[in-house]
Computed example of a mutant assay.
Amino acid sequence: MRAILVVNPKATTTSERSRDLLVRALRSEVDLSVRYTRRRGHAADLAREAADEGIELVVTLGGDGTVNEVVNGLMAARAATSADGGPSAERLPALATVPGGSTNVFARALGLPREWSEGASMILEGLRLGRSRTIGLGRADDRYFTFCAGFGLDAAVIHRVEQARRRGRVSTPTLYLRSMLQQYFLDSDRRHPAIAVERPGEDAEGGLGTVIVQNTAPWTYVGDREINPNPTASFDLGLDVLALRQLRVASTTRTVTQFLSQHPDPQGRHVLRLHDQAEFTLVSARPQAFQLDGDYLGEREKVRFTSVPAALRVIC
């Protein structure tokens, strides 16, 4: 089997020595070449080139951002050959993800351990046994995502965290908590919710303050703790949505507490939940922060979401 390893050299939880160990281990199972990312978006280019070359497996070593880029590169290769109906997931390179970032939500949602060495061991076992599964993806306008999207508050928090990291801060649960409190109390227009969700054949649901979209559960992790606004979300189903109609202190605090509980099931008049959705559009009366897979993508006033079933084969 021909494979490439796409390495983000800035991956936060691996070293040059650990990368060398991973390369040697993978080469015991596959015919491997190693390619390092050099800029934002480079991983997508490498993945698309791999598909064009007939590579059978793409392995990532990095965080969720690296995974997202690789997935978009693979899906771009799929779109480029759609004249004959497009290749199925079986005809695209399979994806294996070695966790190397600070959170690694996608890898952990697949059941991989948090530590890169244990995750690599599980992937090697999967290769030896021929173990894989096919998963669905989400799509927001022209970009795919693996586990989540956000429109409003959570995306604005991610933007704050990214700005702090560029100033040299380390990504920690404390940094996220501080950023969330600052965004909520200082920079959110909590009294005038501006978002609406539109679905084919349904009345629009307006007056929403923030929206979380999930392609699987969990939405994210705080250390080892899963955060699950939509605990029934699944790679095997459509998209799940949780929206808050207003961002008042009491109701928002109650909902966040429900997220963090052992058996999350957010409820209340201010909560809108949609399960297993094939298609919907988020629109806003004013620009909203927007993120995919934990990557801030700027502000939008409208985003169309679709579920893409059985899109990608993964080794896990």
Results as ranks from 00 to 15, higher is better:
85 G>Y: 11
39 R>Y: 07
164 A>G: 08
156 A>F: 04
279 E>P: 01
136 G>W: 02
290 F>E: 02
83 A>S: 12
97 T>D: 06
251 S>T: 15
68 N>T: 08
198 E>F: 05
125 E>R: 15
177 L>Y: 11
271 V>F: 04
78 R>P: 10
236 D>L: 02
237 L>G: 08
220 T>G: 05
111 G>Q: 04
116 W>M: 01
120 A>L: 12
242 L>C: 09
162 E>C: 06
108 R>C: 03
282 L>M: 09
104 N>A: 00
195 I>P: 11
203 D>L: 11
16 E>H: 06
73 G>W: 13
99 P>R: 01
35 R>Q: 14
253 T>D: 01
298 G>Q: 02
67 V>T: 10
21 L>S: 11
218 P>T: 12
121 S>V: 10
277 Q>Y: 00
248 R>W: 12
218 P>S: 04
108 R>W: 10
152 G>K: 07
295 D>W: 03
143 R>D: 00
228 N>R: 15
183 Q>C: 09
157 V>I: 15
82 S>P: 00
314 V>T: 14
8 N>M: 04
261 S>L: 03
12 T>M: 04
231 P>F: 05
59 V>C: 06
165 R>V: 11
88 S>K: 04
271 V>P: 11
185 F>V: 10
98 V>D: 03
232 T>N: 07
153 L>V: 06
94 A>N: 02
26 L>H: 10
80 A>R: 13
95 L>Y: 04
270 H>R: 13
45 D>E: 14
177 L>H: 04
73 G>D: 09
74 L>K: 05
218 P>E: 06
239 L>F: 08
219 W>Y: 15
128 R>W: 12
199 R>V: 06
253 T>K: 08
150 G>N: 05
130 G>N: 13
238 G>R: 08
96 A>W: 10
41 G>V: 12
299 E>W: 07
68 N>L: 01
94 A>P: 11
222 V>K: 01
167 R>I: 02
278 A>T: 11
116 W>S: 10
94 A>K: 13
6 V>H: 00
94 A>E: 11
38 R>W: 00
62 G>D: 03
307 S>C: 10
78 R>D: 05
153 L>Y: 11
267 Q>Y: 03
35 R>V: 14
158 I>K: 04
314 V>I: 15
18 S>G: 12
109 A>C: 08
254 R>P: 07
226 E>M: 10
103 T>G: 00
308 V>A: 00
279 E>G: 00
250 A>V: 15
176 Y>V: 13
208 L>H: 10
215 N>D: 02
244 L>F: 08
304 R>K: 14
1 M>C: 05
203 D>E: 15
66 T>W: 00
245 R>C: 09
122 M>N: 06
31 D>F: 02
282 L>T: 09
199 R>A: 06
61 L>P: 09
239 L>T: 08
279 E>N: 07
209 G>Y: 07
171 S>H: 15
241 V>C: 03
40 R>L: 09
172 T>S: 14
248 R>H: 15
227 I>C: 05
213 V>F: 07
68 N>C: 09
283 V>D: 07
273 R>E: 05
32 L>G: 04
305 F>E: 10
149 A>I: 10
141 D>G: 00
242 L>A: 07
307 S>F: 03
174 T>A: 14
285 A>D: 14
38 R>C: 04
289 A>C: 14
272 L>S: 06
157 V>Y: 01
64 D>Y: 04
109 A>Q: 03
